[in-house]
Simulated scan of single mutants.
Amino acid sequence: MTKHIFPFLCLFIGMTTFTDAQNFSSTEITINRYVDGTLLVPESVENPPLVIIIAGSGPTDRNGNQSFMKNDMLKKLAEGLSENGVATFRYDKRVVKQLKAGIFDKNIRFDDFVTDAKSVVTYFKPSYDSIIIAGHSQGSLVGLLASESGVDGFISLAGAGNPIDQIILEQITKTAPFFTEDTKRVLETLKSGKTTADFPPALASIFNLDIQPFMMNWMEYNPQERIENLEIPVLIVNGTKDLQVSVMEAQLLKDHKADAELVIIKNMNHLLFEIDGDDLVNTKSYNELNHPIIPQVITSMLNFIQKDKSTIEE
């Protein structure tokens, strides 16, 4: 399998301080026994809007990092917004807390991530007049589903337009075509509601028996159908250097939400970084801390948030 498949398909599934810039406060908050996160609040903005940031696939923490991959992309995104007058809350996925405690929960499901996101919305609703969900990668679908519970706007960052089974099949067909038929067979079995041990060992990271129930749950949701029924403002952001979620995926979401705003950013990769080099440079950035969030992301989100806030106040 190639390096392009696994980052996207990895399915494993307080006290107040101040930043160096000192223009927003940072508070650690426990929402419930599953969710811990960081709230950033601008110091000089009265009644700021709140953006809830939801991480992508894998055991990703509130900063956008995993044990083998550190880039701080979600931390940089949150700070970039909060430096510009927007409150942000980012949180560890529940698997992060479990892994830190030495626990691997085989019963975790995709729906659990949606439940966590909804619990964050519920927690902050009494305190904020305007709440926007911004979901990255897998978090885009999580955020899309959570947005149905009542928020003021939704932002998809490098989010897929196709269901996960189609994405898996397309990526394997592109990068390891000799496993295409095996992949089709396993996916059809899962879609029928059954698990299977009949798959090539090379596909174990995708189809391990422990994660098949999670996959089956994830496969129930079609982003195109869900965004079509969303009755709030939507911003869809993707980049031309995204190795995992192509621009076509973003266009699919736009096609099913005609009034959504679509922003395609030149040379932006999956982590919202600007990449001038080749695929090797792109891949290396996943474990590098020196890359800033590309400015167009922050600008696009701020413009969207301001429009959304203006609509609410009217």
Score class of each variant (00 low, 15 high):
112 D>T: 04
269 N>V: 01
268 M>P: 00
98 Q>R: 12
2 T>A: 13
29 I>V: 09
247 V>Y: 09
106 K>I: 08
56 G>L: 15
103 I>W: 10
228 E>Y: 01
214 F>S: 10
130 S>R: 06
285 S>E: 13
156 S>R: 04
204 A>F: 15
302 L>E: 06
101 A>H: 14
41 V>R: 15
31 I>H: 06
121 V>R: 10
286 Y>L: 07
159 G>R: 02
292 P>M: 02
148 E>M: 10
232 I>K: 04
173 T>D: 13
238 N>M: 08
227 I>L: 05
13 I>Y: 06
55 A>I: 04
112 D>N: 12
120 V>D: 08
132 I>H: 05
286 Y>N: 05
125 K>I: 03
282 N>H: 04
257 K>C: 10
23 N>M: 03
243 L>P: 04
254 K>M: 05
82 S>A: 14
152 D>P: 01
307 K>R: 14
110 F>K: 05
273 F>W: 07
312 I>R: 11
12 F>E: 12
219 M>Y: 05
85 G>R: 07
109 R>C: 03
70 K>F: 13
28 E>F: 00
68 F>G: 01
236 I>V: 09
99 L>G: 08
181 E>V: 02
207 F>L: 08
182 D>K: 01
296 Q>H: 12
37 G>I: 02
52 I>Q: 14
82 S>F: 08
22 Q>S: 12
12 F>N: 11
25 S>L: 05
233 P>Q: 04
192 S>G: 12
79 E>P: 00
190 L>C: 00
124 F>V: 11
147 S>T: 04
124 F>N: 10
13 I>G: 06
203 L>R: 08
69 M>N: 08
56 G>M: 11
187 L>E: 00
259 D>K: 14
59 P>R: 09
306 Q>F: 00
152 D>M: 03
168 I>L: 10
281 V>M: 14
239 G>F: 07
46 E>L: 08
205 S>Y: 15
282 N>C: 04
31 I>Y: 03
152 D>R: 07
184 K>D: 01
32 N>V: 12
86 V>S: 04
200 P>Y: 14
302 L>R: 11
262 L>V: 01
200 P>S: 13
216 M>I: 07
285 S>T: 06
191 K>A: 11
230 L>P: 03
55 A>Q: 10
105 D>P: 03
247 V>C: 06
23 N>R: 07
172 I>C: 05
225 E>M: 01
243 L>S: 08
43 E>C: 14
49 P>V: 13
51 V>W: 09
300 S>M: 05
22 Q>C: 03
83 E>W: 01
261 E>L: 03
147 S>G: 14
129 D>T: 06
138 Q>M: 12
109 R>D: 04
71 N>K: 09
45 V>H: 15
204 A>C: 10
16 T>G: 02
236 I>S: 08
141 L>G: 06
92 D>H: 13
249 E>R: 03
108 I>C: 06
240 T>A: 12
243 L>G: 07
113 F>G: 01
203 L>F: 14
277 G>A: 10
196 T>L: 01
53 I>D: 15
230 L>K: 06
207 F>N: 12
219 M>H: 05
74 L>N: 03
174 K>Q: 12
262 L>Y: 08
19 T>A: 14
136 H>F: 03
123 Y>F: 15
106 K>M: 13
143 G>S: 11
170 E>L: 04
59 P>A: 14
36 D>L: 07
27 T>H: 10
271 L>I: 03
204 A>E: 15
